[in-house]
Nucleic acid binder design. Structure first.
Length: 828
RNA sequence: GCCGAAGUGGCGGAACGGAAGACGCGCUGGUCUCAAAAACCAGUGGGGUAACACCCGUGCGGGUUCGAAUCCCGCCUUCGGCACCA
């Protein structure tokens, strides 16, 4: 530019957020600005919930804020839009870290947890979250776990809780049993220790009874497809056939297969080493080898045992079974590639059509018989199993059928002879909920020598967690509660004789399986929640948290909801109508933030340097809400800079823009701008596209800085526009908005104002930039009326010198006109 | 191996099938200043030009279309989940 640039003049820039942010927070607290209004039937409700946090001693990082700030923005905006909003917070306060600390230091987890929750609450307030603290809940308080126990009994009474002995995952570091969902790659989900197997009597919830509903109802909820898919895979519904083989001794051996069409190809059977018939089927001459193998399998680390890469191992029992379809006598083997916990713990092995069976047959020299002929176009030599479909051969009367039809017919054949039939199998196992730990909700059951397991009557709840000084587990696989005589000794509720309490506590995922219901009625003494209040607020409209809970909390909570629905305490099947996952915030180098790495960035330090609103804006602006992203502290000054610009603009500290427009021109453009901004803000918040919303706000700000003039500032259009702009900014930068609102002399509080409306008719412009393409390449742009029709556009385009240059005298073959956008002239 | 998500400037990222790179960071130049910072103004994908023009560009290879970052097919890479589940 030849002329000296005209700088936008700013009178003074004294945006000092640290001077007023804390004061506003105090005032919001004092005036109970975010108090949830009790039920008002005439208002639409909106329940916006964050995942129930475990109050860790490390406090919140800027990563956690990436969850809480967006939900806060939505809650604030929904309040302004007139919704009755429930936006509560509480603590998933039972759990291992506090207890491990107690074990190591002797400090009661109660103290640790209270300190941690105080810190969490302080930090959540610090970043300007608008929680109604009057509804705060703490899952480790007797007032809460009383009802976790109440609901345990409800589940028990409905026949969905049972105690059973079996091989279970044991975390040696946490000294407790874990559920399947809580073991990842053979390691404890919390402490990453390698887990071991331990045989203990454990409490289970029959979540498998709900497998089909958990699967089918996924269709009804607005959740990320990836999460739904993970749950589908986790549930692992598999439709197949059960077939009964009889051993030569007459014992039934049931197997499950998804390939009934290959039944004639079964050349041996395999039992899991833990199968109950192993001993019975083992012939004396095989006993030594079998015993050795079974013992070795029990010792083998399960991660290794379940690795598909590992070479197959196994041993022959000496017994034979009879294939029901062809009366063939086939050997029964034992091998650890068959899992005791899936299906029946036994399989028919079809080496020609199952790679695992094939490998096993190769190693032990067992027969391989082809019963499915691949289609002609498949090039298959018998060096591998053929697992595809085809035409049945060597299958008696079923020869010539396709795999699909043949499989169905074989299943029918079995059914008619009562030798099996269609069967559905699930990968999901029942939920193991007992934990051999102190810091959890005691399982409200009593073991009576006469009556067996007896429920505690609900009037006697809660079963209080006793205070102890010794947090060391017993060492024999029981919780520290087993050492507390006063807790253990009780009377049987049924026969009044002496009895013992259950010493296990519940998995903390039990606590978090119903907390969203408690928020509807957090102080109810007599019931977990009032039915009417639950109906008023639930289900949760928007639920936000990390995707790491896809197959843990998010499946357990759905299960409890369905059980509670079946007990007719609520009238909905799904707790969370809409679920979204915020992206994970990584350290600047792309690694996870963790205290051990020493790379945790806290909101405290960011707020001190840049102010709360700058932190909020940056968190929203840094990238798409649901995408993982590395933290970059360099970016915050940009957010702060923008807030300074907004501050100066809205407080009339700008004198003159760099290219001021005459009022006559600026006013209508300003009207269009502000209406577009309001519209965009609403749309982007609804779509959780906070980053583009902020970007648009910035564009608007930049435009204003350019065209600003004292004359424009004197117009009513400006007065109205700046007010609307402040209102849409309020959820994003609540402190700045409140401060400016007050400096404008308006009545407290900006957060109780209505969300502005936009007028679609004021958004449209009279002209647009017509993009002129020749053969799909942009060659010119022409300002044109929005009313321009195709003929007019064609005329305009052909009149362009630039276009003529590229036409180069060639014939126009085709003209494509997109009204209001572009015209493409195609020449040959 | 299976399932899911994603590959766009130096960086974070925008883009109803219609001007690729909005917005921000960083960088460069300028205004102001004794100076610096801050603030403000301008520029900033690559090649090319004095400046235009023009050419090339959204992981790779094809295809559909007047027109593809966007849709289809086949690959590659990264991340997340599951994995001997019969």
């Amino acid at each position: 530019m030849a002329d000296a640039p005209v700088a936008t003049k700013v009178v003074s820039a004294d945006y000092q957020p640290q001077e007023f942010e804390q004061d506003w927070q105090a005032r919001w607290r004092e005036t109970k600005l975010y108090k949830t209004v009790e039920e008002e039937s005439n208002r639409k409700t909106f329940y916006c919930l964050d995942f129930f946090p475990y109050p860790s001693g490390d406090g919140l990082s800027v990563g956690h804020c990436h969850n809480y700030i967006p939900t806060d923005v939505i809650s604030r905006q929904m309040r302004m839009r007139g919704y009755n909003v429930l936006h509560p917070m509480g603590w998933d306060a039972f759990g291992l870290p506090a207890e491990n600390r107690a074990r190591d230091t002797g400090i009661s987890p109660r103290l640790t947890v209270d300190q941690n929750t105080d810190n969490y609450r302080r930090q959540l307030d610090l970043i300007g979250c608008s929680f109604d603290w009057d509804r705060e809940i703490d899952s480790s308080s007797p007032e809460y776990y009383k009802f976790t126990q109440w609901l345990f009994l409800l589940i028990h009474r409905r026949g969905l809780a049972y105690k059973s002995k079996g091989q279970q995952w044991w975390c040696p570091s946490c000294e407790t049993i874990l559920a399947n969902e809580q073991v990842h790659d053979g390691r404890c989900w919390r402490c990453e220790s390698l887990v071991e197997k331990k045989s203990l009597e454990q409490w289970y919830f029959k979540i498998t009874d709900y497998a089909d509903r958990l699967l089918d109802d996924l269709e009804k909820i607005d959740w990320p497809e990836s999460t739904k898919e993970m749950q589908r895979n986790w549930i692992g519904r598999s439709e197949g056939t059960e077939a009964v083989f009889l051993t030569e001794a007459g014992d039934e051996l049931r197997v499950f297969t998804t390939r009934a069409d290959t039944l004639f190809g079964a050349t041996f059977m395999v039992l899991a080493p833990e199968h109950e018939l192993v001993d019975k089927l083992t012939k004396p001459e095989q006993k030594e080898a079998v015993d050795r193998y079974v013992a070795a399998a029990a010792r083998t680390d399960d991660t290794e045992r379940q690795s598909a890469e590992r070479e197959k191992t196994g041993v022959f029992t000496g017994s034979y079974a009879v294939n029901p379809v062809n009366d063939e006598h086939i050997p029964i083997w034992i091998a650890d590639y068959v899992l005791a916990t899936y299906g029946t713990g036994a399989i028919m092995a079809v080496p020609a059509h199952d790679q695992r069976d094939f490998e096993f047959a190769q190693k032990f020299g067992l027969d391989v018989r082809v019963v499915v002929q691949p289609p002609d176009d498949v090039d298959w030599a018998v060096a591998d199993a053929y697992e595809g479909e085809g035409t049945l051969v060597n299958s008696g009367d079923f020869d010539g059928e396709t795999s699909t039809i043949g499989g169905e017919k074989i299943t029918e054949w079995l059914e008619e002879r009562e030798l099996g039939g269609a069967k559905v199998q699930y990968r999901m196992r029942d939920w193991l909920i007992s934990r051999q730990r102190y810091w959890g909700a005691p399982i409200p059951m009593v073991k009576c020598p006469k009556c067996g397991w007896v429920e505690m009557p609900t009037p006697q709840l809660p079963v209080l967690l006793p205070e102890v000084d010794d947090f060391q587990p017993t060492g024999d696989g029981r919780s520290p509660l087993a050492k507390v005589g006063s807790f253990m000794a009780t009377t049987c509720p049924t026969c009044k004789g002496p009895a013992e309490r259950e010493t296990d506590t519940m998995d903390t995922f039990a606590c978090s399986s119903w907390y969203f219901l408690r928020f509807a009625d957090p102080h109810n003494d007599g019931l977990p929640f009032d039915l009417g209040k639950a109906r008023y607020w639930l289900p949760v409209d928007l639920y936000v948290g990390g995707s790491e809970h896809a197959t843990m909390h998010l499946i357990y909570a759905r299960f409890w909801t369905k059980v509670i629905k079946d007990a007719m305490l609520i009238d909905f099947n799904e707790p969370f109508t809409m679920l979204r996952h915020q992206g994970m915030v990584l350290a600047p180098d792309g690694s996870r933030m963790s205290k051990s790495r020493g790379n945790v960035i806290t909101p405290d330090e960011m707020v001190e340097k840049f102010g709360v609103d700058a932190l909020r804006v940056y968190e929203l602006f840094m990238g798409p809400f649901d995408q993982d992203i590395s933290w970059n502290t360099e970016g915050i000054p940009g957010a702060r800079r923008w807030l300074v610009r907004v501050w100066n603009l809205l407080l009339d500290r700008v004198e003159q823009g760099s290219e001021p427009l005459p009022v006559a021109q600026a006013e209508p453009e300003l009207t269009r701008w502000i209406n577009r901004v309001v519209k965009r803000a609403g749309e982007d918040i609804d779509a959780l596209k906070f980053n583009t919303m902020i970007a648009y706000f910035m564009e608007f700000t930049n435009w204003l800085y350019k065209v600003y003039s004292p004359e424009l500032a004197a117009t009513e259009t400006w007065q109205k526009a700046r007010e609307q702009f402040l209102l849409v900014l309020a959820p994003v930068a609540p402190h700045l908005a409140e401060e400016i609102w007050e400096r404008w002399g308006r009545e407290y509080s900006v957060h109780q104002q209505e969300w502005p409306e936009f007028d679609e008719s004021l958004i449209h412009e009279e002209t647009f930039t017509l993009v002129v393409q020749v053969n799909g390449r942009v060659r010119d742009t022409i300002e044109a009326s929005v009313a321009l029709d195709e003929d007019g556009a064609r005329e305009l385009a052909l009149a362009s010198d630039r276009v003529q240059q590229f036409l180069d005298g060639r014939d126009v073959k085709l003209v494509k006109y997109v009204p209001g956008r572009l015209i493409n002239v195609v020449v040959g």
